[in-house]
Write a protein that binds this DNA or RNA. Structure first.
Length: 281
DNA sequence: CCCGGAACCTGAAGGC
DNA sequence: TGCCTTCAGGTTCCGG
């Protein structure tokens, strides 16, 4: 499940192979992965274009082209970009002018490819980058403001903050000792400070470990990341909390699994006693 | 504007 | 053994 550290790793690995190259051949094997324009316009429009740069924004991978167009990839859950290796069942295939081959694979076909005249059409609505200098602890405090949504729902909202996904959100909340259902506006400033540091440190650790290879995540050379080996709560239901030994619990939040330690991350008051709300009293 | 839930997609895993 | 349900979750859309 590529989140910020996984996409950052892929970007860094691909960078030396693609910058300055141009697309010599474009094959779309699964038309449904091309989101814009039409698959045929995409194929014709991308062919011949030269790559000026490659960057990451949130979980999007952006190939900036000399024409000003942008070729954008989102891997969603099961997508991968492989270099010089094209497995059966690939969704799209790209050959660059010096012979480098790129294959886009995506078992579940949730991922997407775009060719747009301006990258901002796709990434313009994303929130701030958590690892950039402009994202300060005061900025986070201001963003949380009077929001009543559960803190974890906000952390997963890409227009709120770009790049965190389910795994790293759970890890950051554990590191900051915050229950995932805590209303954002109920966080004390001390908690916001801890959360800010936790978000940045779990993402930086994830990048250093080349991402987390749960499910089908692969680096462009087909290798795996090691970040999941350091996870403390994500996907650890029933396993002992590394801090206190209490079994990790899972609750459903917005259709996602939220993993947390019930002792280290005590629930907010309203969640503790839902049955106290009795109309007949 | 804000919030929550469903849908999309496919394969693995668990329960009975 | 086999069938059924649940889980996995990034994003978008819809309804209150």
């Amino acid at each position: 499940m590529p989140e910020l550290p996984e996409v950052e790793t892929i970007k860094n690995d691909l960078l030396p192979h693609v910058v300055g190259r141009s697309f010599a051949e474009v094959v779309v094997a699964s038309p449904e992965v091309v989101k814009a324009p039409s698959p045929e316009e995409f194929r014709r429009g991308l062919r011949g274009q030269r790559i000026r740069g490659l960057r990451r924004r949130g979980k999007y991978l952006i190939f900036d082209l000399h024409s000003g167009d942008a070729f954008i990839v989102h891997l969603k859950m099961t997508g991968a970009l492989l270099i010089n290796f094209c497995p059966d069942g690939y969704r799209a295939y790209f050959r660059l002018d010096h012979g480098t081959e790129l294959a886009f694979t995506d078992r579940r076909k949730l991922g997407g490819l775009w060719l747009v005249p301006d990258a901002e059409i796709i990434v313009g609505k994303l929130g701030p980058e958590p690892l950039e200098a402009g994202f300060t602890v005061q900025a986070l405090a201001d963003m949380l403001g009077q929001r009543s949504a559960p803190i974890k729902a906000l952390l997963l909202d890409q227009s709120f903050l770009a790049g965190l996904g389910n795994m790293y959100a759970d890890e950051a909340l554990f590191a900051a000792r915050i229950h995932p259902l805590t209303p954002a506006r109920d966080l004390t400033r001390a908690r916001v400070d801890k959360l800010y540091g936790a978000i940045r440190s779990v993402l930086q650790a994830g990048i250093r470990s080349r991402g987390a290879s749960v499910d089908t995540y692969r680096t462009p050379d087909g290798g795996q990341g090691m970040a999941h080996l350091a996870f403390k709560v994500a996907h650890m239901k029933g396993k002992p909390c590394p801090a206190c030994g209490t079994p990790i619990e899972r609750l459903a939040l917005r259709g996602r699994g939220a993993y947390f330690c019930p002792k280290c991350q005590p629930p907010p008051a309203e969640v503790t006693k839902p049955q106290a709300r009795n109309p007949k009293s």
